[in-house]
Design a protein around this nucleic acid. Sequence first.
DNA 1: CCCACTATTGACATTCATGTTGATATATCT
DNA 2: AGATATATCAACATGAATGTCAATAGTGGG
Lengths: 192, 192
Amino acid sequence: MNVNSGGKRVRRTPEEAKSLILSIASDRLSALGLEGLNISGVAKDAGMSHATVIHHFGSTGAMRKALLEKMTHDLLSDVMVALNHHEEPARVLDHLFEMLSHGGHGRLLAWLALDQQAFSPASESKGLFTDILNKIAEDSGDPVHAKQIIFLVAIAAMGKSICGDAIAGLIGINETEARQFPEWLAEHIQRI
Amino acid sequence: MNVNSGGKRVRRTPEEAKSLILSIASDRLSALGLEGLNISGVAKDAGMSHATVIHHFGSTGAMRKALLEKMTHDLLSDVMVALNHHEEPARVLDHLFEMLSHGGHGRLLAWLALDQQAFSPASESKGLFTDILNKIAEDSGDPVHAKQIIFLVAIAAMGKSICGDAIAGLIGINETEARQFPEWLAEHIQRI
DNA sequence: CCCACTATTGACATTCATGTTGATATATCT
DNA sequence: AGATATATCAACATGAATGTCAATAGTGGG
């Protein structure tokens, strides 16, 4: 849990410090949920005082925003790579679902969306997102349906990351059926 | 904002009090988002002391859980009615999306899901949910695909309620396209 | 009318997160 | 080595939310 248990004072470069902090924050997001994404807790787990965290990010909101930016960028660039490598749709979907569900990507996105701060126009990742959209639309050939399909996939991915397990449990979907879902969806999307 | 501005002390039946509190809480959820769902704020808007709210519900978490229970029940029974009236799938989907998006239904569900408290086994609405599942599976005739379809619709509905607007904005979906989405989805689901 | 019951309330205590400040330690440069 | 820059920290101040408790005030029954 605690990173720095020794008594010595550690001095990092600002980049190292920010990177460490965001890494710990990401871990806490996965382990504790959104409540774990506060300055005091993150600082404690990172083995530093909370004043240090504030020194680097300025405020709690800014830290969260930085984490969102990093996670979004990682996610989108990963999807972009998969698209450029001409992977089959099923693989891309699987990858997308996996990345959103794992580690709290989708959760953080949802949480910020619920706070009406997400997808701010100034977001650096917006360009990447539109790039992906263009790529998909270009590959599919049907721009009208493409929009609806992308919308469907996007909201489904978000919903699955947030409460996919709970809903699957309610419906009574077993392990293998759950694993097959991305493939199933990709197949039926291609038929449209 | 404030309900009781007079100086007189109002005495309600426990049922009236709970109903009023949950109503105010629902309003605050729509207006202020999840942050508005705390005892102090709700009590203030309801024109009573926060001690009264605690008296009726016991704790903040219990109040939230009660609100979730009520909203879920309202939502599911509405869907059940639509199904029993043999409305066309497009109408049912439209209705589902509308109810989840409006008034913060989906938001509260998502928030509680993020807190890993939602869909608790003891939930009274679980029975209603399985009823709906059986009804749909029975209507569709194909139990294998039915599960996947229901799963898709459920997670899509959740995702749309949380960040549908933001994603639609990113993709560049206009007003009419957005309105047509439920119909579009219903049509392609029926073809499966 | 009087009494029991309880919904309601103000005041208090507690906990916790956030943010500020001045001092200190450490890396880098000359 | 000495000086500079700044990353780090302990301590403090603040504010918000939660929960407890004893007292008060409506309500209904005898």
